[in-house]
Design a protein around this nucleic acid. Structure first.
Lengths: 268, 268
DNA sequence: ACGAGTCGGTGCGGTGCCGTACATTGCACC
DNA sequence: GGTGCAATGTACGGCACCGCACCGACTCGT
C-alpha cells in the first residue's frame, strides 16, 4: 500500500505497451500545485490528467458551493472521466489536494487515442464504471457514517494516493472534503491521535497504526480500496467471460468492526 | 412534464430509426411489479431495462443495508448502465418504485447492439455520464439539504417519472430512498400538505402546486431535471463541436429560493 | 360488518453536528 | 528572538434528526 511505485500511473501501467506508448507520446509531464484547480464545473474539459505522485479531489457542489468530495484521484486513476463518456464539460471541480507530478493529455489528443485503440477505450471505460460506483458509495457514506469514521476513511484514502507514510493535509482541507466543520475534524483527529493511530502536526499527517486506523474507519475504505484494485486490473476480453474479482467468496466486504470512541450505533 | 408521453422510453426515442428498431427487436415488453428487484449489488447484470411507465430506484448500500437512493430511473433512462462501461456486475440494488411496463433486453443482446452501432453506443454512453453527475449531486444533496427539501425534491422527481398528476409512494418507501426515518418524512410531508402543495393519503400523492413544490425543494431538483434533458438529447456528432446546453448564460443553476418552513439556513 | 394490516400523525428523550467564537501553538520570515 | 499567520484545540448553545413508541384512521379481505 505504502509501496512507492515510483512516479507512474497505474491506469497507464495496466495498458498494453503500444497503447501506453502512444498515449505517453501525446502527453506532457506537469507539476500540479496544491489547491490548483484543474477542472471547473460547467466548463469544458481541456485536458485529461494522469496523476503520478499527486492526488486530486473531485468536489461536488450544491447551491454554488463546493459541498463535499465525491472521490479522490491519485496514481490509480485519471481526471477527466466525462470525456470518456462523451460529456465535454466537467460536472465537478477538480482541486489538487496533494502537489506533485501528473501526465497531462490535451482533450482532443485523448479522444484521438480513444478512437485509435479499442483496448485503451475499454480499459478506461471500465475505470469510469468504477468511479461511478465510488460516487454512489460516497453518497451513502456521507449520509450515514460519523465524522470520526469518515476522517479515518479519507485519511487512509489520501495516504494510499500520497504513497507516503506521512503526507500533508490540514484539518481545514479535510473538513471541506467531508463537508463538515473544521473543528469537527479537529475533534475527530484528536481522538484518533489519542488512540495512537495517527500523529497530526500542522497539516503533517503521520499514520502510526494503519490497521487500527482501518478499524476506526467505516467499511467504505475497504470497499473503495477493493474497488480501486478492480478498476486498475486489466479489463477482461469481451469474448472470454471472466468473472471480475469484486467479492472474493468468504470475504464479506463489510465485516463487523469495532467502534473507536464510545460505541456509537450505526444507523441502519 | 406531466404530459403523458404514451408508453415509450425517451432514451430509445432519441435513437435513429435503425438503431431503435434493432434494439426493440431484441427486447421484450415486461411488467415490473412494485418492489421487484431487477438488480442486486455484486450480482451479474442479466438484463437491461428501459422503463416506459414504471420507475426504478437505484439504491446504494453501506454495511449490508440499502442506505439511500442514488438516482431514480424512469422512461427518460435505463437500468443497467454498468454494462455500458464494461462492468458486468451491478454495483447497486435496482428496486421498482412505481409498477408498470418496461422493455427488457438480455445483457448479451444489449452488448451486441452496442457493438453493432457506434451511434447507439455513443448515445448511451453519454447517458452514463449524466447518471454519474447525478450520483455526485445526490451525495451532496443528501449530506446538506434538509429532509423537507429533499422530500419535495424526490416527490417531484418521482412525479416526473410517473407521468401522472397523482401517483403512489408511501412515506415508508420515500424514507428509505432518502435514508431517513419514516416519521421524518411524515412530518415533512405534513408541512408540505399544510402549505397546500401536495395531498398525501395512504401512499397516494397528489401534487397541487407544482411551482410551489419546486420552490420548497432544493435546487437539486432543477439541476437534475436540466441534466436529464441533456441526457436525453441526441449526442452531438464527434466531428462537429457543439457546446452542450448545460448552463445557458444568465441562468445560474442554483438561483436563490425561498424557504418553506421557518427560514432554515443552508449549510455552506 | 368486522378484524387485520397498512399507513401516517405525533410525541419524547437523546445526540451528533452546526455555527460561532476564542485561546493556544508552531512555523516562517523577518 | 520577536512578529504574524496559519493550524489546531476547545467551548457552548441550538437544532435537525435519531430511535422508539403509540395510536388513530383508512383499506381490504372474508
Amino acid at each position: 500500500m505504502i509501496s512507492r511505485t515510483g512516479t507512474s500511473n497505474s491506469l497507464l501501467a495496466a495498458l498494453p505497451q503500444r497503447e501506453r506508448d502512444d498515449l505517453q507520446q501525446r502527453s506532457e509531464r506537469v507539476l500540479l500545485a496544491l489547491d490548483q484547480v484543474i477542472g471547473e464545473p460547467g466548463k469544458p474539459i481541456r485536458d485529461v490528467y494522469f496523476p503520478m505522485d499527486c492526488f486530486v479531489a473531485l468536489m461536488a457542489g450544491v447551491d454554488g458551493h463546493d459541498a463535499l468530495a465525491a472521490d479522490l484521484v491519485g496514481s490509480e486513476g485519471m481526471v477527466g472521466v466525462p470525456l470518456l463518456l462523451g460529456v465535454e464539460r466537467s460536472p465537478l471541480r477538480a482541486r489538487v489536494l496533494g502537489a506533485g507530478e501528473a501526465l497531462r493529455v490535451a482533450a482532443p489528443e485523448f479522444q484521438h487515442a480513444l478512437l485509435a485503440s479499442v483496448l485503451l477505450e475499454r480499459q478506461f471505460r471500465r475505470y469510469a464504471g468504477v468511479r461511478m460506483e465510488q460516487f454512489a458509495r460516497t453518497a451513502a457514506c456521507a449520509a450515514f457514517h460519523r465524522v470520526e469514521q469518515r476522517v479515518a476513511c479519507w485519511l487512509l484514502m489520501a495516504q494510499d494516493r500520497a504513497h507516503r507514510e506521512r503526507f500533508v493535509l490540514t484539518h481545514e482541507r479535510l473538513a471541506r472534503l467531508l463537508g463538515v466543520r473544521r473543528s469537527g475534524v479537529s475533534t475527530a483527529a484528536g481522538t484518533l491521535q489519542a488512540a495512537r493511530l495517527i500523529t497530526y502536526t500542522r497539516g503533517h499527517v503521520l499514520v502510526l497504526d494503519r490497521v487500527g486506523l482501518e478499524q476506526a474507519a467505516c467499511g467504505c475504505y475497504r470497499s473503495a480500496r477493493d474497488l480501486t484494485r478492480f478498476g486498475i486490473a486489466a479489463a477482461p476480453r469481451r469474448d472470454v467471460e471472466i468473472a471480475p474479482p469484486r467479492a472474493p467468496p468468504g470475504t464479506p466486504s463489510d465485516a463487523p468492526r469495532p467502534q473507536l470512541s464510545r460505541g456509537i450505533p450505526h444507523r441502519h
